[in-house]
Design a protein around this nucleic acid. Structure first.
Lengths: 170, 170
DNA sequence: AGGATACGTCAGCCTTGTTGACATGACTAG
DNA sequence: CTAGTCATGTCAACAAGGCTGACGTATCCT
């Protein structure tokens, strides 16, 4: 099945063979290890892990975001997120301030210390990405993004699209 | 820093801005969620998780592989892997046979039941990949693979390269 | 014969995910 | 104003899947 698929036009769609799809799957697996390796190295021994990195990243990206919004982006339970946020707030990396319009909400921001850690994490991750981008070239990079976007779940693509074009403010 | 990098030739390398790199990072994060979502759904409630999926995938891909080889590919400790293998062997999805050349080694194979589960997991994952590939087109797919390969750690790229061109035997 | 290797296992720990239950304060509809 | 809903925090308990360290057995190799 699907070993040599044909387009409606009769054009051979050789990039859609099971073989090609499997190669993409294996590439995703090994690449993701590299993707997380550098931040993981920085965080190890700091009592923080990947979950803290994710929280820090998205608070940096959406300063003043609420807990509920962060919950939707990360796709975890509030108990899971709260455990992470609690340590980040206690350690002075994140600030939580009562909402102005709606006082039930808490607005999350990185403190200067939190911003420093965020910077070192994203620097490390960008370094690897830059090397990969440079090696692959601009055309490859465009394709890379296209395929990744097509791979997302519908809900997550929504979050991605609203985030990705916001300026970084750095 | 690095907001509008210039090539040695003076050509603007706009795809290497921090902004572009960040978009790639966020795309990787959200895409990986989609990448694992379908197998995760199948495995939930089966007493298996992502670790079992990985073991099953690579045993399928390298029938007769040894524990040590699997350890290197997965990048975990033998205790972690053993916990997973033990349940898969006990449940009759994987067989472990004493090595022929070297009797210290165990050769790992999927049983017919293991192959059935592998099939359903990889079918689900390939379906999503196929949809993404089709939406993005062959040129994008080539770039996707290029960037992912450039993103891997050196050690893992070695494993990837020796695996990726092996036939799937299915 | 002795050391290295491949594997299995026990015990204990950590992070990060889960469910369920409950409390508080704030908003909102009637 | 009251009742219901919402946003958040927290407690307890549990599970998956990482980790380290230690130990044992069988096998291979020098």
């Amino acid at each position: 099945m699907n070993q040599t698929p044909q387009g409606a036009s009769g054009q051979a769609l050789l990039f859609l063979t099971d073989e090609q799809l499997r190669k993409g799957i294996e590439a995703m697996f090994f690449a993701y290890q590299g993707f997380t390796a550098d931040p993981d190295r920085i965080l190890e021994g700091m009592a923080y892990g990947r979950a803290h990195h994710r929280a820090i990243h998205f608070i940096h990206r959406s300063p003043g975001t609420t807990v509920n919004n962060l919950l939707a982006i990360l796709g975890v339970t509030k108990q899971s997120l709260n455990r992470v946020l609690r340590t980040l707030i206690a350690d002075g990396l994140v600030s939580s301030t009562v909402g102005t319009r709606d006082k039930r909400e808490r607005h999350l921001h990185l403190t200067p210390q939190g911003a420093t850690l965020e910077r070192s994490l994203s620097d490390a991750q960008r370094d690897r990405m830059r090397t990969a981008y440079r090696a692959a070239g601009p055309v490859a990079v465009a394709g890379f993004r296209q395929v990744l976007e097509a791979m997302m779940d519908e809900d997550m693509r929504r979050h991605y699209l609203t985030l990705v074009d916001k300026p970084d403010g750095r």
